[in-house]
Write a protein that binds this DNA or RNA. Structure first.
Lengths: 180, 180
DNA sequence: ATAGATCTGTTGAGTAATCAACAAATCGTG
DNA sequence: CACGATTTGTTGATTACTCAACAGATCTAT
């Protein structure tokens, strides 16, 4: 079943409004009224879809995590470089969200959620029974790689994406291949 | 009474969709389905507000004429130059509409509607009983001025607004003051 | 000319969004 | 602290939009 047009439009407007507002002031100071005003939606409409602004932020985060897990699934089928390019382009396309979530000091919750997601993903790829990581400790490798990856993406976004997604993907991909 | 939010949003989306489509293909080849798809609105919703695509185009035109008549009213209270600047800025802000409507060959209906509106407005200002136009013929002066004005605005839009609104307003305003 | 496809304009049933109003909670400033 | 002001979360009645389906009109290409 597909979602009603009205639902999709309302939710899009609401999510976009919150992200925009977060670039302007801190999450704590944003009211539901602010969001409904910006989204040009009745205040009550927000409560039809979300419990409160925390729930709204959670749902936005989960949606991005979910989209990225889709990427990672299809990554198995395609070239390693190409899948990394796709990831970088996803960051680029959702720059407003990721830069707000990773680059701003307050919103550290998403960073840890993002890190956790990457740890789980990298764990699927690391093999300590053979290859370059034979004899290594899985937890250590996974934590090491995920932190490197999240950290460098964070840096890239914070600095306004100084290199195009493909360049980033090439360089980061080369480094990742040495580790996993 | 103020219009329901949903009505405003639907109509905005529909009007914007048609203008956009008109920059891409001729009005004749645009279907109601095209419009509803572009506007991301159910096809039936268009019929809630408009009889057909011709009615829709009419309503869009009338709305702009109506807005401009508002300008002309408030022009009496403010500086002549400033009111001309406002007009040019209105053209600039609605560039997509006016350039499509005036610059494209097919849509000549709006040009004549626009010209007619300006004739009526200039007629209010022309005085053949005294001043520089004493002894002149009102119809001739009014047709002369309105055609000059519409023509130069048309040229300005067709050529991608080569001068900022204020410059246009100054130069055109100076010429107009010689005539009315 | 005719068949297939697309577009039109309209219908009815169902759902989502709106608006105004409310009491309770929270904020912020004297 | 206490005050007014703002925000919150919820309600019920109303309205707008959606969706699927329809028959008839119009377009297209053989």
């Amino acid at each position: 079943m597909k979602v009603d047009r009205r639902v999709a439009k309302s939710q899009e407007a609401i999510k976009k409004a919150l992200i925009e507002l977060m670039t302007e002031k801190s999450f704590d100071n944003i009211t539901i009224q602010d969001i409904s005003d910006r989204a040009n939606v009745n205040r009550g409409t927000i409560y039809l879809h979300y419990l409160d602004k925390f729930d709204l932020l959670d749902k936005i985060m989960e949606e991005h995590i979910y989209n990225m897990s889709d990427f990672c699934e299809s990554a198995a089928e395609m070239d390693f470089l190409e899948s990394t390019v796709h990831c970088m382009e996803y960051f680029e396309n959702n720059f407003l969200f990721f830069s707000t979530m990773l680059a701003s000091e307050g919103a550290s919750y998403f960073r840890s959620r993002f890190l956790q997601f990457n740890i789980e993903e990298f764990r699927k790829d690391v093999d300590i029974t053979q290859g370059k990581n034979a004899g290594q400790n899985e937890d250590i490798v996974v934590e090491f790689v995920a932190n490197a990856y999240v950290g460098v993406v964070e840096w890239w976004l914070k600095n306004g994406m100084p290199y195009p997604p493909r360049d980033m993907a090439e360089k980061v991909g080369e480094l990742l291949e040495r580790l996993v």
